[in-house]
Nucleic acid binder design. Structure first.
Lengths: 328, 328
DNA sequence: TTGAAAGCGCTAACAT
DNA sequence: ATGTTAGCGCTTTCAA
C-alpha cells in the first residue's frame, strides 16, 4: 500500500508552502493570488488529496466526533432514533460514533470510556443506569451530553424523551371509558428506567380516581407466563399494557399460544412497532412514539450545547400518539 | 471547561519523563522499576487520565476507525447486521463509524469521502451502486473494503452475503411441489442489487424445467398495486415472493385491504422479519437470513485483511433458512 | 501575497 | 531504568 498523501505532497507539487495549502483548505482566500489558488485547487484534484481529520482534530483540540451510546442497537426504536441523529449530523462536519451497550452495564461503561479516549466533542446517551454517580466520571469530563429516551435523576444533562407520563394518563381514560377492571402492565426490568416508570406511574395517576387496579409483571422474571396466566383466571375485564415493542410481541405470542382471544377475553395495547401492530388480526392498538424526531432534537440540542458551551438541563418531551385499534 | 489532561501532566505529576509514561501506557514494563510503575499507575488513576486516540492515531499512521456504510439504517436487517459488526469490534481497539446512505447515492458518496478523510483503516460497505467505476476513487485509496449483503461486479472486494441464489432454487422446488402456476416476484428496484437479482434468478433457474412462469413487479413503480391486482385476476394458482421485509409488509397490507385470502386465493412468502411473519394469521412463510452472522463474518474478514494486508476477493455465503408456514 | 517555525499529544530511536 | 529528541499532518502566529 502506498503512503498517504499529506499536505506536504500538495505543497511540493504546487510549489507553495504548506501554510498556503492550509489556507486554501480553510477557505482563507483573502490574500491569495488567483493563480496560486487555482494551482492548489488543481493539484488537490489531480492527486485526489483529502486532509487528515486526525491531524486537524489534534491541532483544533476537538475531534468533530459525536458519541452515541444506545441500549440495544437491534430494535426498531433505536434504528429510527439513529436515523434522526444521523440525518442531523450528516449536514455538519461531525461524524457519529455509534456504540451498542447491548443492555449490558459493563459494556456501556467500556463504550463511554472509549468515547472519552476518542475525545468526542459530545455524547448522546440512552442510559442503562439511573444513578448519576454511576456516570460521575463522565460528568467530571464536562463533555456535553444529551440523554435520549430516558434520564438519570436528578437531572444532570438535558434529556429528550417521549411524553410518557402524559400519554399514560390519556390511556387511563380510555381504560375507564371501556370499563376495564384490571390493567396488567407488562414490561422489561422497570426499576430506574425513567421512560418505563413514567408509563406505569402515568397510568396509575390517571386511574387513581377509579376502582381499576394496576398490576406489574416484569417479563425478565422467568415465570412471567405462569403469573400472567394466573391473573387471567378471573371474570374481570382485563387489559394488558405492554411497555415496549419486544414485550408486546411476547404478549401476542403468549396469547396466541394460549388461545386467549383479543379483545374478547383480554384487551391489549403496546408501545412502538406501530406498523406491525396494525397488520395483526385483530389489529393491535399501540402508542406510537417518534424516535426519529427524538434523535433529531437531541442532536440539535447537543450541537448547540457544544457550540455555545452552554449547559441546558431542560427535559424536552416529544409527543407520541395513541393509535386505537380493535384490540382494546 | 478546563483543558484536557495530556501525557505531560502525568509525567510532571509523577516526576518522570513522558517517554516513561508512554511506555507504561503501552505495557512496556520490561525495564521499569516497580516503584515507577506504581507511581505512574496511581497518578493516572488519580487524575483519571486517558490518552488521546487522536494523537496516538496520528503517530501510528492509522486511525483505529472502521467505517460502515449501510443502505438504510432503519430496517431490521441493518440493525442486526450492525449488531454483529459492533459485537466483533467491541472486543478490539477499533471504533466503528456507522454512516447511513439513506438509499441515496449522493449521500453514500459523501459518507465514503468522509470516511477517507477520517483515515479509516477499513470499510464495510453495503453498496448502493453496482458499477465498480462508481467506486473507483475508493479502489484507488487501497483501503481494505468488505462488501455485505450485495456486491459490485466484477469482484473488486470480498463480499459476505446470504445464499440468495441457492435458497431461491430451493424455493422453486416448493412452488413446483405445491403446483403453483405463476410466481409474482415483488421487489424494490432490483437492477444492479446483486442480492435481489440472485433471488430472482435463482427462482427462474429452479423453475426452468417447469411450466411455472415468473413475473416481476417493482413496487417503486407507483401503480404496482394496480398491476398486481390485474395479475391476480385469473384462475391460475399464484404465489407472491416478496424480496425483502418492507416489500412483504406492503404485500400483506395490500392483500388485507383487497380482502384477498392467503393462502386460498394467493400464496405468499417473503424475506426477513421472520419473527413478525410468524405472528400474522395466517402465519407467513419466510426466508430467514442471518444478518448478525453476516456482520460478524464481514468484520472478521476485514480485520484480517487490515492486519495481514492481504487482499481476499472471495465471496462468502451465509446460509439462510426457509421457514414454511400456512401462507404457502 | 507568502513562508518559516512552533506546537497539538503521542511514540520510538537513540542516547545514557 | 529512564530521558532527549525528532516527527506524525496539520494550523497558526509572526515575519518578510
Amino acid at each position: 500500500m502506498d503512503k498517504k498523501l499529506t499536505i506536504n505532497d500538495i505543497a511540493a507539487q504546487a510549489s507553495v508552502s504548506k501554510t498556503t495549502v492550509s489556507r486554501y483548505l480553510n477557505g482563507k482566500f483573502d490574500n491569495m493570488s488567483a493563480a496560486t489558488k487555482i494551482r492548489i485547487e488543481q493539484t488537490i484534484a489531480e492527486l485526489d488529496y483529502r486532509p487528515s481529520r486526525q491531524a486537524q482534530a489534534l491541532k483544533a483540540r476537538n475531534s468533530f466526533l459525536i458519541g452515541v451510546s444506545v441500549a440495544d442497537i437491534s430494535n426498531m426504536y433505536t434504528s429510527r432514533l439513529l436515523k434522526g441523529i444521523g440525518a442531523y449530523f450528516q449536514k455538519t462536519t461531525y461524524q457519529v460514533l455509534i456504540m451498542d451497550a447491548d443492555n449490558t452495564v459493563d459494556r456501556e461503561l467500556n463504550n463511554l470510556e472509549k468515547m472519552i479516549s476518542e475525545q468526542v466533542d459530545g455524547i448522546i446517551l440512552q442510559p442503562l443506569v439511573h444513578q448519576p454517580d454511576h456516570y460521575q466520571f463522565l460528568i467530571d469530563q464536562k463533555i456535553p451530553v444529551v440523554q435520549v429516551d430516558r434520564y438519570i435523576e436528578p437531572f444532570t444533562w438535558p434529556a429528550v424523551v417521549s411524553d410518557n407520563f402524559q400519554k399514560s394518563v390519556e390511556l387511563a381514560q380510555i381504560f375507564k371509558d371501556k370499563h376495564y377492571d384490571t390493567i396488567i402492565v407488562l414490561a422489561n426490568h422497570i426499576q430506574g428506567i425513567s421512560s418505563r416508570m413514567n408509563r406505569l406511574n402515568g397510568l396509575k395517576a390517571g386511574l387513581n380516581d377509579s376502582p381499576i387496579t394496576v398490576d406489574l409483571i416484569e417479563i425478565d422474571d422467568s415465570n412471567w407466563q405462569a403469573v400472567l396466566k394466573d391473573k387471567l383466571h378471573t371474570t374481570n375485564r382485563i387489559g394488558i399494557f405492554a411497555l415496549n415493542g419486544q414485550v408486546l410481541w411476547s404478549a401476542v405470542r403468549f396469547l396466541k399460544q394460549q388461545q386467549i382471544n383479543v379483545p374478547e377475553d383480554v384487551g391489549l395495547i403496546g408501545y412502538d412497532d406501530d406498523q406491525f401492530a396494525d397488520m395483526l388480526s385483530p389489529a393491535i392498538a399501540s402508542v406510537a412514539q417518534n424516535p426519529q424526531e427524538i434523535g433529531r432534537t437531541a442532536a440539535d440540542k447537543l450541537a448547540h450545547s457544544i457550540k455555545d458551551d452552554v449547559i441546558l438541563t431542560k427535559n424536552t418531551r416529544i409527543p407520541s400518539t395513541i393509535q386505537m385499534r380493535d384490540s382494546l
